[in-house]
Simulated assay, not measured.
Amino acid sequence: MNYEWLGGYFLQKAGVVKDYQPEWEATRYFVGGKMFAMQGGDKDGKPIFTIKLEPSLGDFLRKQYPGAVVPGYYMNKVHWNSLYLEGAIPEETVREMADWAYEAGLRALPKKKRSEIENGKE
Rank of each mutant, 00 (worst) to 15 (best):
F30H: 13
S82Q: 03
L106G: 03
E25R: 15
T27L: 10
E91M: 11
L109G: 00
Q21F: 13
V78W: 05
K18I: 06
A68N: 04
M35S: 01
F30A: 08
G15M: 13
A14I: 06
P55V: 09
P55T: 08
T27Q: 15
M38Q: 10
W80K: 07
R28S: 12
I51S: 03
R107A: 14
M97N: 01
N76S: 11
Y29K: 07
E25K: 15
E86Q: 15
P22Y: 07
L83M: 14
G72K: 04
F60D: 15
I48M: 12
T50W: 02
F30L: 15
N2R: 13
G45T: 06
K77A: 10
K18A: 15
G40S: 07
R95V: 06
G40C: 09
W24Y: 10
K112A: 13
P66M: 13
A108H: 01
K43Q: 14
F30P: 00
D42K: 07
K46R: 15
K18H: 10
F49K: 03
G67R: 05
R114D: 04
G8Q: 09
A108N: 04
Y65V: 03
M75G: 03
G105A: 06
V16W: 05
E92Q: 15
N119M: 12
E23R: 13
G87Y: 10
M38L: 12
E96A: 08
S115C: 08
G105W: 02
G33D: 04
M75F: 15
